Amino acid sequence: MVGIALLLNFQGKYSDAKSTFFASLIALFVGAATVIYNIDHWSLTKQSAIHFLIMLITVYPILLLSGWFTIVSVFDALKIFLFFVLVGAILWLVLFTLAKVFSW
């Protein structure tokens, strides 16, 4: 995705390049943090809490810096945080359900 962002940048599509770059950073951190769920001696609660903390210190700041949201006040950052938590919870529930349905 970084390569796509570079191509977009060279084509003068700076906004698209910036968005693609930030999306690639989010994908990188989310993908890298999934290894936490392979630590079998940790409970699902601990795995989920550690994953949330990693997302909080990586993905949340990216959302704030990406320019995808208007940030004028601390209240705006709080709204973005609530969006971050809501989307994360929905994704966690969907993936948890799929893992239970398709586990052998």
Rank of each mutant, 00 (worst) to 15 (best):
F52E: 05
I62G: 10
K13P: 11
D76Q: 07
I26L: 08
A49N: 13
V2M: 03
I50Y: 08
L53M: 15
I54W: 00
K13D: 14
S48R: 03
L56I: 07
H41A: 13
L86I: 00
F29R: 05
H41V: 15
I50K: 05
I39S: 00
S103C: 08
I4L: 07
Y14L: 15
S15C: 15
Q11S: 14
I26G: 00
M55Y: 06
T45G: 11
Y14G: 14
L6D: 10
F83M: 02
V94K: 06
N38D: 10
L78V: 12
W104S: 14
T58F: 03
A49I: 15
G3R: 12
L53W: 13
V35N: 08
A77Q: 10
L44Q: 14
W104D: 13
A33D: 00
M55Q: 08
L8K: 06
L93V: 03
A32Y: 11
T20A: 11
K79N: 11
V30Y: 04
I57R: 08
K13F: 13
K18P: 02
L95K: 04
W104E: 14
I39M: 00
L7P: 02
F22Y: 15
T97K: 12
A99L: 04
V59E: 03
N9Q: 11
G31I: 06
I80L: 01
F69P: 04
F21S: 08
V74Q: 13
S73D: 00
Y14S: 15
V94Q: 03
V101F: 04
M1P: 06
V2A: 06
I90P: 09
I39K: 04
A99G: 07
F102A: 06
G31K: 10
F29C: 01
W104P: 12
Q47K: 12
V72A: 12
V101K: 09
Q11P: 07
V59Q: 04
S19F: 09
L78G: 04
T70K: 10
